[in-house]
């Protein structure tokens, strides 16, 4: 029974690797294609999540728990990057509406 469990785990890890790689490929398609900048930022956020999933998987596969810290750091940085991009797009949109340059978009929420 324990034999079967370990075997099943090996097998599902392999399948998960393939799934994550496929998802990466599809996300890169959106990154290149996505008509607006917001599409590309969504793709980047997705890539950060895929990175976290991959690192989690790798950590299970190798049995090294140290990689978990990398996953957490990636989650933090991915979130910050998405928020930074969103603010950039937001300020750009405000500036365009006002007809000014993005550098004097003033205070925003």
């Amino acid at each position: 029974m324990a034999e079967f469990g370990a075997q099943f785990l090996e097998w599902s890890i392999d399948i998960a690797y393939v799934a994550i790689m496929l998802s990466f490929a599809l996300t890169v398609f959106r990154l290149l294609r996505g008509p607006t900048l917001a599409d590309r930022v969504v793709a980047l956020d997705m890539m950060a999540l895929l990175g976290i999933a991959f690192i989690g998987l790798f950590s299970i596969a190798t049995g090294e728990a140290a990689y978990l810290d990398v996953a957490i750091a990636l989650a933090l940085i991915g979130f910050l990057a998405t928020v930074a991009f969103a603010r950039y797009i937001y300020r750009g949109a405000l500036a365009e509406r006002r007809g000014t340059d993005i550098s004097d978009a003033g205070d925003d929420s």
Partner: peptide, 9 residues
Amino acid sequence: LLGRAGYLS
């Protein structure tokens, strides 16, 4: 945040 920014842009 991204949705709001996207909508405005």
